[in-house]
């Protein structure tokens, strides 16, 4: 799910140095209890998304407040991600093409995807995901010849503490996923057997993405060394530039970029979905014109962050200081309160 492999290596190596790759998977596993909490809420409140659940559990006022926060955060982040598409393309392969075209092309795709419905969206991710994995594996294996020996050693020379802080930086990635889950909940099947299936899916997805991200970070540190990895903005793209197939085909990053574009489209669509659902549940705003309005807002945000370096720091700011605390507190609080209420009800009866 998503595009976490683009910045992941840079983030973890800046926090954890040459051992940074080790924290990726544990940080992703942090997402599993959250996923399971969300699922348990699903079995308790079938066919309701978490915003509706919050209204039931916390009452109308707080529920609405959470809903508005949810919309603001996901909408803002979706816009930032759209900006990232432009940034990536402009930075790496097509510097002379107007950035607005990247925004436009992507937002049209996103809109078309969302218009086709959640089912098509699910299938789209199903098709793109193997592509992403294939591209990643190709990218990683083809850069094996560029590996610098010994850069990973010594292991854990700086102790474990930097790793912990690095983990905090990676955790938001998984929280983005949970945020989307919170919205999609209303569309998930609810009988017990299917929930068991979903539980397995959560495990599988988290592990798969976690392991892939780990490998991405691992390979980048191997190829660039920890110092360079921190410095390179989108390490994976540079890795793509360095790919050489038997000295003839070199620098196929523009092909890889096509796949990353697919990943970003999925992610932005996911956020578009969450915003649209949020609007629907909280303010009862529904229909085509609101979807177009959200797309326009995304475009607006993207145009607000034409400066790449500001964009990147803004994304990490939203990740670390909005998405992470919001999701952590919200889901935990919701789950706790729902459990407590349920327990009280049983005792009361």
């Amino acid at each position: 799910m998503g595009t976490t492999f683009l910045p992941v290596a840079s983030i973890v190596s800046s926090a954890g140095g040459r051992d940074g790759w080790m924290i990726v998977l544990p940080a992703f596993i942090l997402g599993i209890p959250y996923g399971l909490m969300v699922l348990s809420l699903l079995s308790q409140f079938p066919n309701k998304n978490l915003l509706q659940v919050s209204e039931i559990v916390f009452g109308k006022g707080i529920g609405k407040l959470i809903g508005v926060l949810y919309i603001l955060i996901t909408g803002y982040f979706g816009g930032l991600l759209l900006g990232q598409v432009g940034d990536i393309y402009e930075r790496s392969i097509m510097p002379l093409t107007p950035i607005s075209l990247f925004y436009l092309g992507t937002i049209i795709l996103v809109f078309y995807l969302c218009k086709s419905g959640i089912e098509v969206f699910a299938r789209f991710s199903e098709v793109i995901f193997p592509l992403i994995i294939l591209a990643l594996i190709l990218n990683l294996t083809l850069s094996i010849s560029r590996i610098e020996p010994g850069v990973l050693l010594p292991i854990l020379s700086e102790g474990v503490m930097p790793l912990f802080w690095g983990g905090l930086k990676v955790a938001p990635f998984v929280m983005e996923y949970i945020l989307f889950m919170a919205g999609i909940l209303a569309f998930l099947p609810t009988d017990m057997k299917e929930i068991g299936q979903l539980r397995r899916e959560v495990w599988r997805a988290v592990f798969l993405v976690g392991i892939l991200d780990m490998f991405v970070a691992f390979t980048q540190i191997l190829v660039f060394g920890p110092f360079e990895t921190t410095r390179i903005v989108y390490g994976l793209l540079v890795l793509g530039k360095m790919v050489e197939v038997s000295r003839t085909v070199a620098g196929v990053e523009s092909l890889f970029l096509g796949v990353w574009l697919g990943a970003l489209v999925i992610k932005i669509s996911a956020f578009l979905f969450t915003v649209v659902w949020g609007l629907e549940t909280v303010m009862n705003l529904k229909g085509l014109k609101w979807e177009i309005a959200v797309c326009a807002v995304f475009m607006g945000i993207a145009f607000g962050f034409v400066r790449g370096s500001v964009l990147i720091s803004e994304i990490s700011f939203v990740d670390n200081y909005l998405i992470l605390p919001f999701t952590t507190i919200w889901i935990l609080g919701l789950w706790g309160t729902a459990r407590w209420k349920k327990g009280k009800n049983i005792r009361g009866n």
Binding site: E148, V151, F224, G225, P226, F227, E228, M242
Partner: peptide
């Protein structure tokens, strides 16, 4: 020596 290698070596200090 490729540029990437050179930069990595410099990075190792």
């Amino acid at each position: 020596v490729r540029l990437g290698h050179y930069l990595t070596i410099i990075g190792s200090q």
